[in-house]
Amino acid sequence: MSQLKFSKEHEWVRVEGDVATVGITDYAQGQLGDVVYVELPALGRQVEQDKEAAVVESVKAASEVYAPISGEVVAVNDKLADAPATVNEAPTGDGWFFKLKIKNPKELDGLMDEAAYKTYVEGLA
């Protein structure tokens, strides 16, 4: 399994070949609380880095999920429709949101590694 990369908006990316899997971080799910609904992008949609790609809703509020990198949506996690709590239980595993065919690999260079993200989150407290 490849290493995770992280955005300042609390998404993670796992790169395998030319496909990147995207989800929200453990910190993000903890801040949201119980996830009750997830809205995923349509297959084939071109998403742009830092633009809205999905929506995650807790009991209290709806939050946007941004694309950490640009690309074409090639898969979405349909299981979240009936089991949104998976985002709380396994945010970096079964709780993934969508997969992108990477458009510009250089965009990955601007993301944080795990250590840098950990420091970033500690700075938010």
Partner: peptide, 12 residues
Amino acid sequence: PVQYPAGILAEH
């Protein structure tokens, strides 16, 4: 307090 560690779903 908006919620305790149990969370809103469990508290509800």
